[in-house]
Simulated scan of single mutants.
Amino acid sequence: MHSPTVCNLTDIKRILRYLSGTSTHDIQLYKVAHLQLKAFSDSDWVGRPTTRRLTIGFCVFLRSNLISWSSKKQPTVSHSSTEAEYRALASTIAEITWLRTLCFTPEKKHIAIDYHFVLEKVLLGDLLVQHVPTTKQLAVDFTKPLFTVKFLPAISNLCLLLPAKIEGG
């Protein structure tokens, strides 16, 4: 970066604290009988006052196993929270579609703008889009900064294991 700001330094510190505090965490995987995907998506519209760019995030589960996740700041500004949510949802559906071709029978690829991409999948019955309240939204962990009080429950919700404490040091 050629001209870092205080905001950049804050972000870097947050990332370093996160990495140092989670480097020993593991992901718990369970044996599954059925291949059923479940996904959560979220967006943080205008989450950064300085850039007004949104962050989208999602997490995908194979039954109770977290198998895919993403958090990404978008390169452009969205005009509304609805547009931001559609971007997050389209990104999630693209990931689900890819995972389904990997795990299940291949599907045809479609090129469409986000709204029509989502609408087509819903009309085909490939997915059911439901509102999830923020308090039960697992993907919110990928779009907004989490402080310790919210981070620890998030670990449990994503089926991550905390490392066992080592006795004597």
Rank of each mutant, 00 (worst) to 15 (best):
P75I: 14
A112H: 11
I155C: 14
C7N: 14
K121Q: 05
I166F: 13
L158E: 03
W98V: 07
T148H: 05
A90Y: 03
F40Q: 01
L160S: 04
E85D: 06
L161R: 10
D141A: 15
L119M: 11
K31V: 15
H79N: 07
D141W: 13
S71K: 02
S80E: 03
N8A: 01
F151Y: 08
H34K: 13
T5F: 13
K109Y: 07
I12K: 07
R17I: 01
C159D: 09
T82D: 05
I111S: 10
P75E: 09
S64L: 11
L128A: 15
G125K: 12
L123Q: 12
K136W: 00
P49C: 09
L161C: 11
P4T: 02
R52K: 09
T135M: 13
L161T: 05
L102K: 11
S71F: 02
L89C: 10
G125E: 02
I15W: 02
T101W: 09
T148I: 11
I56V: 06
D42W: 00
T92C: 10
H2P: 07
N65C: 13
V32Q: 10
T92H: 05
T101K: 05
T50W: 00
L138D: 02
D126L: 12
H131G: 07
G57C: 09
T97R: 13
D11H: 15
V129T: 01
L9M: 08
E95Q: 03
Q36D: 11
T143K: 10
G168Q: 05
Y115N: 10
I12Q: 13
L66A: 00
L37V: 06
K109W: 06
Y115G: 05
C159H: 11
K150N: 15
N65W: 13
Q130I: 10
A33N: 10
T51A: 14
L29R: 09
N8K: 06
I67L: 01
F104D: 12
S3P: 13
T5V: 00
H131D: 08
E83R: 08
D44T: 15
T22Q: 11
L89E: 01
I15E: 01
Q137G: 06
R53P: 01
I113N: 12
E85T: 13
E107Q: 12
L146M: 09
Y86E: 05
Q36H: 12
E85I: 14
P133M: 05
G57H: 08
A33L: 12
I155G: 03
Y18K: 06
L37S: 05
L152S: 12
I15L: 04
F147S: 02
T82Y: 04
F61Q: 03
L138I: 08
Q137A: 13
Y30P: 02
K13I: 07
R14V: 04
K73E: 04
T24E: 14
R48S: 14
L37T: 07
